[in-house]
Protein backbone atom coordinates (compact mmCIF):
# COMPACT_ATOMS: atom_id res chain seq x y z
CA UNK A 1 0.00 0.00 0.00
CA UNK A 2 1.40 3.36 -0.98
CA UNK A 3 2.10 6.07 1.58
CA UNK A 4 -0.57 8.33 0.07
CA UNK A 5 -3.43 5.82 0.20
CA UNK A 6 -2.44 4.95 3.76
CA UNK A 7 -2.73 8.61 4.69
CA UNK A 8 -6.08 8.85 2.95
CA UNK A 9 -7.35 5.75 4.76
CA UNK A 10 -6.27 7.17 8.09
CA UNK A 11 -7.51 10.71 7.38
CA UNK A 12 -10.90 9.91 5.83
CA UNK A 13 -12.61 8.64 9.01
CA UNK A 14 -11.06 11.44 11.06
CA UNK A 15 -12.20 14.03 8.52
CA UNK A 16 -15.70 12.55 8.43
CA UNK A 17 -15.90 12.57 12.23
CA UNK A 18 -14.68 16.18 12.34
CA UNK A 19 -17.22 17.28 9.71
CA UNK A 20 -19.97 15.45 11.62
CA UNK A 21 -18.89 17.12 14.83
CA UNK A 22 -19.00 20.59 13.28
CA UNK A 23 -22.47 19.88 11.80
CA UNK A 24 -23.70 18.59 15.14
CA UNK A 25 -22.36 21.66 16.92
CA UNK A 26 -24.25 23.92 14.48
CA UNK A 27 -27.45 21.96 15.07
CA UNK A 28 -27.09 22.17 18.85
CA UNK A 29 -26.38 25.91 18.84
CA UNK A 30 -29.35 26.41 16.50
CA UNK A 31 -31.55 24.36 18.83
CA UNK A 32 -30.46 26.55 21.72
CA UNK A 33 -31.31 29.92 20.17
CA UNK A 34 -34.42 28.60 18.42
CA UNK A 35 -33.19 29.14 14.84
CA UNK A 36 -33.12 25.38 14.11
CA UNK A 37 -35.96 22.96 14.77
CA UNK A 38 -35.47 19.37 13.56
CA UNK A 39 -39.24 18.85 13.48
CA UNK A 40 -40.08 21.92 11.43
CA UNK A 41 -41.56 21.39 7.99
CA UNK A 42 -41.49 24.00 5.20
CA UNK A 43 -44.86 25.54 4.40
CA UNK A 44 -46.61 24.36 1.23
CA UNK A 45 -48.14 27.84 0.94
CA UNK A 46 -44.88 29.74 0.57
CA UNK A 47 -45.08 32.41 -2.17
CA UNK A 48 -48.74 31.59 -2.67
CA UNK A 49 -51.77 33.77 -1.95
CA UNK A 50 -53.41 33.44 1.46
CA UNK A 51 -56.16 30.78 1.53
CA UNK A 52 -59.89 31.45 1.49
CA UNK A 53 -61.30 31.93 5.00
CA UNK A 54 -63.44 34.11 7.26
CA UNK A 55 -62.95 34.32 11.01
CA UNK A 56 -65.14 35.95 13.66
CA UNK A 57 -63.54 38.06 16.38
CA UNK A 58 -62.74 36.61 19.79
CA UNK A 59 -65.94 37.28 21.74
CA UNK A 60 -66.39 40.28 24.03
CA UNK A 61 -63.29 42.26 23.13
CA UNK A 62 -62.99 45.31 20.86
CA UNK A 63 -60.67 44.02 18.09
CA UNK A 64 -62.27 42.85 14.83
CA UNK A 65 -61.87 39.44 13.24
CA UNK A 66 -60.65 39.10 9.65
CA UNK A 67 -61.01 37.29 6.36
CA UNK A 68 -58.90 36.69 3.26
CA UNK A 69 -60.00 40.04 1.77
CA UNK A 70 -58.42 41.88 4.73
CA UNK A 71 -55.00 40.52 3.74
CA UNK A 72 -55.06 41.71 0.13
CA UNK A 73 -53.77 45.11 -1.07
CA UNK A 74 -52.25 46.21 2.21
CA UNK A 75 -50.23 49.39 2.84
CA UNK A 76 -47.51 47.25 4.53
CA UNK A 77 -46.76 43.58 5.26
CA UNK A 78 -48.75 41.89 8.02
CA UNK A 79 -47.94 39.07 10.41
CA UNK A 80 -50.59 36.41 10.99
CA UNK A 81 -49.94 34.72 14.33
CA UNK A 82 -51.70 31.50 15.40
CA UNK A 83 -51.64 31.22 19.18
CA UNK A 84 -53.51 29.90 22.22
CA UNK A 85 -53.65 30.75 25.90
CA UNK A 86 -52.79 27.10 26.72
CA UNK A 87 -49.63 27.20 24.60
CA UNK A 88 -46.39 27.62 26.55
CA UNK A 89 -44.12 28.66 23.62
CA UNK A 90 -46.67 31.43 22.94
CA UNK A 91 -45.59 32.97 26.25
CA UNK A 92 -41.94 32.75 25.12
CA UNK A 93 -42.62 34.66 21.90
CA UNK A 94 -44.99 37.19 23.43
CA UNK A 95 -42.35 39.86 24.30
CA UNK A 96 -41.10 39.77 20.69
CA UNK A 97 -44.65 40.28 19.38
CA UNK A 98 -45.07 43.22 21.79
CA UNK A 99 -41.82 44.75 20.50
CA UNK A 100 -43.04 44.42 16.90
CA UNK A 101 -46.37 45.95 17.88
CA UNK A 102 -44.60 48.96 19.44
CA UNK A 103 -42.68 49.39 16.18
CA UNK A 104 -46.01 49.57 14.38
CA UNK A 105 -45.98 46.16 12.65
CA UNK A 106 -49.59 45.01 12.28
CA UNK A 107 -50.11 41.53 13.78
CA UNK A 108 -53.36 39.70 13.08
CA UNK A 109 -53.94 37.10 15.80
CA UNK A 110 -55.76 33.81 15.32
CA UNK A 111 -56.74 32.29 18.64
CA UNK A 112 -56.55 28.54 18.00
CA UNK A 113 -58.72 25.93 19.81
CA UNK A 114 -59.16 28.18 22.81
CA UNK A 115 -61.93 29.60 25.01
CA UNK A 116 -62.70 33.30 24.60
CA UNK A 117 -62.40 34.13 28.34
CA UNK A 118 -58.95 32.45 28.46
CA UNK A 119 -57.84 34.32 25.33
CA UNK A 120 -59.03 37.65 26.76
CA UNK A 121 -57.32 36.96 30.09
CA UNK A 122 -54.05 36.18 28.27
CA UNK A 123 -53.91 39.51 26.40
CA UNK A 124 -55.21 41.49 29.37
CA UNK A 125 -52.52 40.10 31.64
CA UNK A 126 -49.55 40.11 29.27
CA UNK A 127 -50.41 42.91 26.87
CA UNK A 128 -52.09 42.90 23.49
CA UNK A 129 -49.81 42.89 20.42
CA UNK A 130 -52.68 42.37 17.96
CA UNK A 131 -54.47 44.80 15.65
CA UNK A 132 -57.11 42.17 14.82
CA UNK A 133 -58.00 39.16 16.94
CA UNK A 134 -60.01 36.29 15.48
CA UNK A 135 -61.12 32.98 16.98
CA UNK A 136 -60.62 29.59 15.30
CA UNK A 137 -62.10 27.32 17.94
CA UNK A 138 -62.64 24.30 15.63
CA UNK A 139 -59.17 24.74 14.11
CA UNK A 140 -60.46 24.39 10.54
CA UNK A 141 -59.04 27.69 9.23
CA UNK A 142 -55.66 26.72 10.71
CA UNK A 143 -55.77 23.60 8.50
CA UNK A 144 -56.46 25.83 5.47
CA UNK A 145 -53.18 27.60 6.31
CA UNK A 146 -51.26 24.35 6.87
CA UNK A 147 -50.79 25.01 10.58
CA UNK A 148 -49.62 21.94 12.53
CA UNK A 149 -49.01 23.46 15.95
CA UNK A 150 -49.07 26.72 17.86
CA UNK A 151 -47.47 29.18 17.77
CA UNK A 152 -47.05 29.62 14.04
CA UNK A 153 -46.37 32.96 12.37
CA UNK A 154 -46.86 33.91 8.72
CA UNK A 155 -45.58 36.99 6.92
CA UNK A 156 -48.07 38.20 4.33
CA UNK A 157 -46.76 40.78 1.86
CA UNK A 158 -48.72 43.75 0.52
CA UNK A 159 -50.18 41.73 -2.34
CA UNK A 160 -51.44 39.03 0.01
CA UNK A 161 -48.74 36.44 -0.77
CA UNK A 162 -47.34 34.32 2.06
CA UNK A 163 -43.60 35.09 2.14
CA UNK A 164 -42.43 33.42 5.34
CA UNK A 165 -43.75 30.95 7.89
CA UNK A 166 -42.21 30.19 11.26
CA UNK A 167 -43.43 27.13 13.16
CA UNK A 168 -42.62 27.58 16.83
CA UNK A 169 -41.94 30.67 18.95
CA UNK A 170 -40.46 33.83 17.42
CA UNK A 171 -37.40 34.06 19.64
CA UNK A 172 -35.24 37.24 19.82
CA UNK A 173 -32.78 35.52 17.41
CA UNK A 174 -35.51 34.64 14.90
CA UNK A 175 -36.85 38.18 15.18
CA UNK A 176 -33.49 39.84 14.48
CA UNK A 177 -32.01 37.40 11.97
CA UNK A 178 -35.04 36.32 9.94
CA UNK A 179 -38.11 38.42 10.50
CA UNK A 180 -36.77 41.99 10.62
CA UNK A 181 -34.81 41.73 7.33
CA UNK A 182 -37.93 40.30 5.65
CA UNK A 183 -40.13 43.07 7.04
CA UNK A 184 -37.72 45.61 5.55
CA UNK A 185 -37.60 43.74 2.25
CA UNK A 186 -41.36 43.58 1.79
CA UNK A 187 -42.09 47.02 3.31
Amino acid sequence: MSKLSRRVLLGAPLGLAAAGGVGFWYMLSGLQDGSYDPRSVPSALLNRPVPEFTLNPVAEQPLPGFARADLLNLPRPVLVNFWASWCVPCIIEHPQLMALHREGVPIFGVNYKDRAPDARAFVERRGNPYTRLAADEPGRVAIEWGVYGVPETYLVDRQGLIRWRWPGPVTPEVLEQDLKPLLRRYA
Binding site: V41, P42, A44, P51, E144, W145, G146, Y148
Partner: peptide, 8 residues
Protein backbone atom coordinates in the same frame (compact mmCIF):
# COMPACT_ATOMS: atom_id res chain seq x y z
CA UNK B 1 -54.11 17.72 2.25
CA UNK B 2 -51.08 17.90 -0.05
CA UNK B 3 -51.95 21.46 -1.13
CA UNK B 4 -51.95 22.62 2.50
CA UNK B 5 -49.18 20.58 4.11
CA UNK B 6 -46.88 19.67 1.20
CA UNK B 7 -45.09 16.42 0.39
CA UNK B 8 -44.30 15.74 4.04
Amino acid sequence: LHARYGDF
